[in-house]
């Protein structure tokens, strides 16, 4: 068991953002967290990253997972769009947490960065400026950075937001391949319910409380699943 939530709830200044969270994530799982805006997805991410402590209940980590070992892919910020940095510099910064107080990267850190650049097919973009890359390329760079930070768990926050459909599918396939080939656990927050049920092994559906948690196949049998997938499909078309 990598992560266990036991009846956890999170609050902002007294008002509950999301409650009744009880689920387990095992090594190698691919969990997709779905739900509408304001359903508590971002709050849950903060809880998993240990940036927010639960109001009640608990979030436990197992298999020797430290909070600093989570490979996180946050949503992009406006400031990054015109940021002068090479793809390599961005990827290498994923090793930061492992440095602690030490000021400079070791040879091993650089080797790990190079390895992940190769793994995501970024060799030709290595020395390019981050702001000149396409949206999909930027996400791959950030994914490589996340991979530099972890061996166990990837946490992706809306990774396909703003990407065109073809690039979106490529990125999904890439994430699936990483999950399958390396056994890395993936937790993804997404609006895109169609792709969620297509790729994920487990689904966590939130609506300020936990609506459903279980295998994807079971989710599709539930009322919530049927209606949400139907709605999602309708709006996506």
């Amino acid at each position: 068991m990598l992560i266990t939530c036991q009846d956890a709830s999170f609050a902002y200044e007294g008002s509950i953002a999301v409650c009744g969270l009880s689920f387990t994530v095992n090594s190698g799982d691919y969990l997709c967290v779905v739900g509408e805006n304001g359903s508590g997805k971002s709050t849950l991410i903060k809880g998993l990253l240990r940036l927010k402590t639960p109001q009640s209940g608990s979030v436990l980590t197992g298999d020797g997972l430290l909070a600093s070992e989570i490979g996180y892919l946050p949503q992009q910020t406006a400031a990054q769009k015109d940021f002068p940095a090479s793809a390599y510099e961005v990827v290498l910064s994923g090793r930061l947490a492992s440095r602690g107080i030490l000021p400079f990267y070791s040879r091993r850190d650089k080797a790990i960065a190079d390895e992940n650049i190769k793994r995501l097919g970024l060799d030709s973009l290595r020395n390019r400026c981050y702001r000149e890359l396409s949206g999909g390329q930027q996400q791959r760079v950030l994914l490589a950075r996340a991979l530099c930070a972890t061996k166990k768990l990837l946490l992706l926050d809306e990774p396909v937001a703003g990407l065109d459909p073809r690039v979106t599918q490529e990125l999904y396939r890439l994430i699936e391949r990483i999950n399958r080939d390396t056994g890395l656990t993936v937790i993804m927050v997404s609006h895109d319910i169609q792709s969620a049920v297509k790729y994920a092994s487990h689904i966590l559906h939130l609506r300020t409380k936990q609506e459903f948690y279980g295998k994807t196949a079971d989710y599709l049998q539930t009322e919530a699943g049927k209606s949400f997938v139907g709605e999602g499909g309708a709006t996506n078309d």
């Binding site: 946050p74 994923g94 930061l96 000021p103």
Partner: peptide, 22 residues
């Protein structure tokens, strides 16, 4: 010079840096 790499990380992406314990 000592904080060069950390200043980069904090400048480029506060959320990521925060998540990795900086």
């Amino acid at each position: 010079a000592f904080f060069y790499n950390k200043i980069f990380a904090v400048t480029f992406d506060e959320n990521f840096a925060k998540a990795t314990g900086v």
